[in-house]
């Protein structure tokens, strides 16, 4: 039996900089997980993924990642995705320089 769809964000790396990006609510690609759109509909999620995969000159490796709502924003549910929201963990020299996470 197919597993039930769980909420997801659409994420990738930006081709030129390698930055982690997320599809935002208005269709723009955003840097922060909390600004991502949370897909609760599987078909919409897969359509967005196919559209992202058709932008190889802008994105690398788009995929859907599990997420949940926390304090009104999407939040990752897997530690790997949590790492991707910030930057290296040794000291603040990634995204965590500009956000309080």
């Amino acid at each position: 039996m197919a597993r039930a769809f769980t909420p997801k964000v659409l994420t990738a790396n930006r081709l030129l900089e390698g930055d982690v990006v997320y599809l935002g609510a208005d269709g723009e690609w955003v840097l922060y997980h909390s600004d991502a759109v949370l897909f609760t509909d599987e078909e919409l999620a897969n359509t967005a993924l196919a559209k992202a995969a058709a932008q190889p000159d802008f994105l690398v490796g788009p995929y859907l990642a599990n997420a949940e709502t926390q304090n009104g924003h999407p939040a990752p549910t897997h530690f790997r995705e949590e790492f991707r929201t910030r930057g290296p963990s040794n000291y603040a020299h990634g995204k965590q320089e500009s956000i309080d996470v």
Partner: peptide, 15 residues
Amino acid sequence: PLRLMNGLYLQLHAY
């Protein structure tokens, strides 16, 4: 494979 032959990885946060 071309970038890997030249030492370039795409890692978690950047190249």
